[in-house]
Computed example of a mutant assay.
Amino acid sequence: MRLRYSGVCRQCGTSIAAGTEAIYERETRTVRCLACATEPEQALYSGPEPTRDGLLSPAAGTAGSSARREYERRKTKDQDRLREKWGRFGALAVGLSNERPSTQSWAQGAIGEERLGAGLDAVSSDSLAILHDRRIPGSKANIDHIAVTPGGVWVVDAKRYKGRPELEIEGGFLRPRVEKLLVGRRDSTKLVDGVLKQVDVVRKHAGDVPVNGVLCFIEADWPLVGGAFTTRGVHVLWPKRLTKVLVAQASGDVDVARMRELLASRFRPA
């Protein structure tokens, strides 16, 4: 289709002007340029690419790629199980069956990462470098997004949860202070623990550069005024607030290009 508004290709990061023919992906509300649409996404990382200062740097990666691959793997496995169970009626069983919630959750997670990734790519610049879907060395786990600014490194975990994120504080003068993250009144404090573990891993490679943790909730029930908060050093906010925070980190001593290259080489695309 011809785009009514300008956008950024979610695969290669190229700016696409309004009126240009491109692929609009309705489910994720993202776009792909025609050049990327003719190439398999697995071929995204083809080795180092030159940067403006002549250094070689790996590609930024594709937001949500590992989550989407896991969704497709689980979906295929579920369908194969149905075909085996129902024999010649297998195709009908597949068509009439709903996806298991545990399988669908991977698709929902991928969509959230893709949407946030597109927003981050839209504000990337020489002073704001973005890496998507990076594998933690020696682990099957991954980091959704890493942002590098002159002020430091930001480790971003994207979550597509319903409900309002809130901070609940228990204890005080007579009892130890305990901070809990609630989402829709559900105790989701384990999400903070997960981000802190990712921050610790990145900090080992970033040296003395400040490393910050972020939980970014997509489609959550945020209030009209306020809403963002910090718990145990982890920033809890929404996509537009995150991009404003990152863009504001324009001053500092971090060499963005070199730090991006360092982290990209330590944390390869998942």
Rank of each mutant, 00 (worst) to 15 (best):
R68K: 11
E27V: 14
S127L: 10
D221L: 08
A67H: 04
A18K: 11
Y24P: 08
V245A: 12
E84Y: 14
G90R: 08
L128F: 07
R52F: 13
R134P: 03
K159W: 07
C9W: 10
K190T: 09
A91M: 03
S139K: 12
G112S: 04
K240T: 15
L167C: 14
A93Y: 00
L196C: 06
Q79H: 15
L120G: 03
I218P: 02
V254G: 04
D144M: 02
I218R: 06
D53Y: 11
L215N: 02
T38C: 04
A264T: 06
A63T: 08
R32P: 07
L246Y: 02
M1F: 12
R268S: 04
T230L: 02
L120Y: 04
T231R: 06
K190I: 11
T28G: 00
Q108C: 00
S188V: 02
T231C: 07
P223M: 08
P40F: 09
G213N: 01
A248D: 12
V199Q: 01
D221Q: 01
T230A: 07
V256A: 03
D208R: 15
G54Y: 05
D253Q: 13
P50A: 03
T20G: 00
A60K: 11
G227P: 09
A118I: 02
K162A: 13
A257N: 13
L3Q: 01
E21H: 10
R26N: 14
L237R: 03
G184V: 05
T30F: 03
V123F: 03
C36K: 10
V156M: 00
R260C: 04
D126N: 14
V209L: 00
F89N: 09
V234W: 02
R203Q: 14
A206L: 02
R26I: 13
